[in-house]
């Protein structure tokens, strides 16, 4: 916010106008790809070939969306991306829930029940945030095989939980380190145990960091392609993999409108999550820095 009091001179007004003009132009530039995707997805195929990218559709149609959802060919099958969309949810929801709960418990234990070497444990977990995914593809495939989870949704959930825990632990640990430890001491004296203190004392004040963890994990896991393509079978593929298959299917003409519609469908949930909870995301990220 601009809290500086100053005289409104013509020069200041001009500067302000230029500032807003630049901001609006930059905003439009960033919105342009989304706009083109949206416009293309509701145009019939012949209009795409004839007109320019930015031309408004003459005969807007939802047919590409319907095709993308239920009829488009992804590789050998032609069932659209709809089924894979639900696949993604079936993977993302348990993976987000489990990694958030485990991260919260880790953060709680690492800050409020310190033990010999707890700092080392945290440092090693932090290391997990920096491991490139490609490095673990083979060992992970082997592990999933041993566990009998190859090509299953449960296997993908496990992979995402394992990778997500590094981040969620970091979030919760940094949040809980700012919660006074005397609260835990008081609760111990009052007779509460490990889980009771977590449930009754820590969790009720954790809403901001839970939102951060959920948004972060949801976005990461929903957008994942590499693990999805490596560890899934045909019927357990997430929507990102299906989208890739749909776009790369080489039979017939390229249906750009269908491709765009499918891409929009695949991107929609993360957009919705961010729009709904975005302000809590920012609030949660800065929660530790301001004294409550």
């Amino acid at each position: 916010m601009d809290n500086v009091i100053r005289r409104r001179t013509p020069g200041a007004r001009l500067a302000r106008a230029v500032l807003y003009a630049v901001l609006i132009v930059m905003g439009l530039v960033y919105l342009l790809p989304l706009l083109i995707m949206l416009l293309t997805s509701i145009k019939p195929l012949d209009e795409i070939g004839a007109g320019t990218l930015l031309a408004l559709p003459e005969n807007p149609t939802l047919a590409p969306w319907i095709t993308a959802w239920g009829e488009a060919c992804t590789g050998m099958r032609c069932e659209g991306v709809g089924g894979y969309f639900w696949n993604s949810f079936a993977i993302v929801i348990p993976a987000v829930a489990i990694s958030t709960v485990v991260g919260a418990l880790n953060g709680y234990a690492l800050t409020k029940w310190r033990f010999r070497g707890s700092e080392l444990v945290f440092a090693l977990m932090l290391f997990g945030c920096f491991i490139p995914f490609q490095v673990v593809l083979l060992p992970m495939a082997q592990t999933l095989g041993w566990l009998g989870l190859s090509s299953s949704r449960a296997g993908l959930v496990l992979v995402h939980v394992v990778f997500g825990i590094a981040f969620t632990t970091l979030f919760f640990r940094n949040f809980y380190v700012a919660v006074p430890s005397e609260l835990v001491s008081a609760a111990k004296l009052d007779g509460a145990g490990f889980f009771r203190i977590f449930w009754r004392i820590l969790l009720p004040v954790s809403a901001p960091i839970i939102v951060v963890s959920v948004i972060w994990q949801f976005t990461q896991i929903w957008n994942d392609f590499l693990f999805g393509v490596a560890f899934s079978a045909h019927d357990t593929q997430p929507v990102t993999v299906a989208l890739n298959n749909l776009v790369n299917t080489s039979t017939g003409v390229k249906e750009y409108n269908v491709n765009m519609a499918a891409a929009m469908i695949a991107a929609l949930p993360t957009l919705v999550v961010y729009v709904l909870a975005g302000k809590y995301f920012v609030r949660g990220l800065t929660a530790g820095s301001v004294k409550g």
Binding site: P180, E182, L183, S185, A186, L189, A192, R200, P204, G292
Partner: peptide, 30 residues
């Protein structure tokens, strides 16, 4: 023995009141 088994109560410098609970719940928690 654990703190809970010692039959003691403590008043902390920072008061350590449970932030999510009302005063009534704070007092009754133990």
């Amino acid at each position: 023995r654990t703190p809970a088994e010692r039959d003691i109560a403590m008043v902390f410098q920072s008061y350590a009141l449970y932030p999510s609970m009302t005063v009534r719940q704070n007092i009754a928690f133990g």
